[in-house]
Amino acid sequence: MRSKRLWFIGLLVAISITLSGCAWFSDVTLDIRSSITGLPFTISTYDYDGQKIDQIKANSVKISTYRPMSKTDSNQNEQSKVIDIEYGGHQMIHVGSSLIASEGLTNYQDRFNRKVNINNINPSVPMLAEIYNNFKNDWSGKARVILIRSQAGKPIAVYVGNHVRVSGTDMKSTTKINVDGKRLFIYRCDYSIYDLSTVKKM
């Protein structure tokens, strides 16, 4: 009986170690932390031309659809673009302008060339490459550069991570990204995400 218990404990430890490196598991952990305790975010909003309007720094932030304005279609997909930002007992209701919320991530915009050039002559089978890339996204994430632009196409932020996983949200016009175990939240922005190995400065 004791050997079975030890075997079971060993199995749980092995699963925990395996899942700790899983990007999907890391994302779930971030979502749970966000719902229960909130995440430490720097929240910045930008005008159409990419100029910063305001910035909030808070240790406990939760971002969701603003429930009084919530509207869903026949498939229960959220249609409202009004978001609710709860921080430290305060509330910010936001709609319209571009917004980025990052959990302790460095914005490399000032150090990054505003144009990106990719030269790739490696042959690949598109279907296999897509399967591989989707698997990498869910399991371990990939080393990527995230270039975020305003609605006018002006660069406003650049983030880099060794393990980057992109996923959707139930909020309209939003994307959440796991960057090395930290949350990046993008609302009403244009963005491109490049494999780090392919990015070269012009």
Score class of each variant (00 low, 15 high):
105 L>C: 01
201 K>F: 11
141 G>H: 00
149 R>I: 01
119 N>C: 12
40 P>I: 00
169 T>A: 09
136 K>Y: 04
195 D>I: 00
82 V>P: 03
147 L>C: 07
139 W>K: 05
22 C>P: 02
119 N>G: 06
63 I>V: 13
197 S>F: 13
126 P>G: 12
159 Y>M: 04
33 R>W: 09
91 Q>V: 09
131 I>F: 10
2 R>I: 15
114 R>L: 12
10 G>M: 12
192 S>G: 03
154 K>G: 03
99 L>E: 06
131 I>P: 05
10 G>N: 10
136 K>V: 12
70 S>W: 04
77 N>R: 14
17 I>K: 02
1 M>N: 15
85 I>T: 00
142 K>M: 09
72 T>A: 07
133 N>W: 06
123 P>I: 15
102 S>V: 01
105 L>I: 06
184 L>I: 10
94 H>P: 02
112 F>R: 11
100 I>W: 07
67 R>N: 13
3 S>Q: 15
60 S>R: 15
23 A>T: 00
128 L>P: 01
155 P>N: 11
63 I>S: 06
86 E>I: 04
161 G>S: 07
63 I>Y: 10
62 K>C: 04
31 D>R: 05
48 Y>M: 05
4 K>D: 13
51 Q>P: 07
137 N>H: 12
165 R>G: 02
184 L>E: 02
38 G>N: 14
140 S>W: 05
161 G>P: 00
5 R>N: 01
91 Q>S: 06
118 I>K: 11
74 S>Q: 03
109 Q>T: 10
101 A>G: 08
149 R>L: 13
58 A>I: 04
152 A>C: 09
93 I>C: 04
24 W>D: 01
46 Y>E: 06
132 Y>M: 11
8 F>D: 12
20 S>N: 11
178 N>M: 03
90 H>I: 00
84 D>R: 05
138 D>Y: 14
27 D>S: 06
148 I>G: 06
14 A>H: 08
41 F>C: 09
7 W>K: 13
82 V>L: 09
170 D>Q: 12
8 F>W: 11
160 V>T: 14
127 M>P: 07
182 K>F: 02
133 N>K: 11
63 I>K: 03
182 K>T: 01
139 W>F: 15
57 K>L: 07
3 S>G: 02
146 I>P: 12
103 E>N: 03
8 F>S: 14
95 V>W: 09
36 I>R: 07
73 D>V: 05
37 T>F: 10
121 I>D: 15
51 Q>Y: 14
93 I>R: 01
